[in-house]
């Protein structure tokens, strides 16, 4: 980090400076947006204005349209994500613990991990139709690979000394698993969960935009088709806020699962 002299940096080092400056900068942005859109310096049909966005939001909430779509998206996400957890964690633990099994599945897993799996959407629609299951399947595919890969990595990175130590004190396989392997791998599993949540949310929205029957993605598509930019911006911002909340939540889950490990790759 940059070294600085204490007298010069004093203002920015005060407690609360970060929050104050951040809030001010967001308010400034909103003010600028309102001015540019309100005075029609840029056509508000393209960028909308904050006031109109809020109005569109109030409208959506009042007509209860929003809740219906939100519930659908939430259900799809929950279904797909829980399914991916249930499959990915045991699979990752097995492939991480049994070395040869790991070698066998590694290239296939890594290929799926590296590819944008949302591209399989057209196929999934053909297989599962346009109902909730195809959209949950996109979430499932998005989330499962980060969780498997990170769980495997977590098991492989458990200190061999701990395992040997537990064995020499007479720990059985069962104890070894519950007391050493699982807690040791937990921070990695949680990293996988965080990445999986991110991919899952993208999956829900992309699938709903593609199928366009119901859900937040459909709201976005409908707003676009009707050139309703106010509503379009509102729903996209709402989706972003949900994504942000989910990211924060999973970051604190991660910290809670491994308080000793504070630095991580994002």
């Amino acid at each position: 980090m940059r070294p600085r002299s204490p007298q010069r940096a004093s203002l920015l080092l005060r407690p609360g400076a970060r929050a104050t400056v951040g809030t001010l900068s967001v308010l400034l942005f909103i003010g600028l947006w309102q001015t540019v859109g309100g005075l029609a310096l840029i056509d508000p049909r393209y960028i909308s204005t904050p006031v109109d966005v809020v109005r569109a939001g109030v409208d959506l909430v009042r007509t209860e349209e929003l809740w219906r779509h939100l519930r659908v998206s939430g259900a799809e996400f929950a279904l797909g994500f829980v399914a991916s957890l249930v499959v990915a964690v045991p699979l990752g633990l097995l492939a991480g613990w049994y070395r040869r099994l790991g070698y066998l599945v590694d290239p296939v897993l890594m290929t799926f991990y590296a590819m944008p799996r949302d591209a399989m959407l057209p196929l999934i629609i053909i297989w599962l139709g346009i109902g909730i299951y195809s959209r949950a399947a996109v979430v499932f595919l998005g989330a499962i690979f980060p969780i498997i890969v990170n769980t495997m990595a977590g098991i492989r990175k458990v200190e061999p000394v701990w395992i040997r130590c537990a064995r020499s004190f007479g720990a059985r396989e069962r104890h070894l698993f519950w007391k050493i392997l699982l807690p040791g791998a937990l921070p990695y599993i949680m990293t996988g969960v965080r990445l999986g949540i991110g991919r899952g949310i993208i999956g829900v929205i992309v699938a709903e935009m593609y199928v366009s029957v119901e859900g937040l993605g459909e709201l976005i598509m409908a707003a676009q088709a009707g050139l309703n930019t106010d509503r379009l911006v509102f729903v996209t911002l709402l989706v972003s806020a949900l994504g942000f909340a989910a990211l924060r939540l999973s970051l604190s889950l991660e910290e809670w699962s491994a308080p000793w490990q504070r630095e991580r790759e994002l």
């Binding site: 940096a9 993605g217 976005i220 729903v235 972003s240 994504g243």
Partner: peptide, 29 residues
């Protein structure tokens, strides 16, 4: 620069965690 960080931070985190694909109708516009 701490100042630059504080000013941009809220936008960066918000956009980082948002499924930006949702903005594509706007980009087409």
């Amino acid at each position: 620069y701490r100042g630059v960080e504080y000013v941009l931070e809220p936008f960066v985190w918000f956009l980082y965690s948002s499924p930006l694909v949702a903005f594509y109708p706007l980009f087409i516009v």
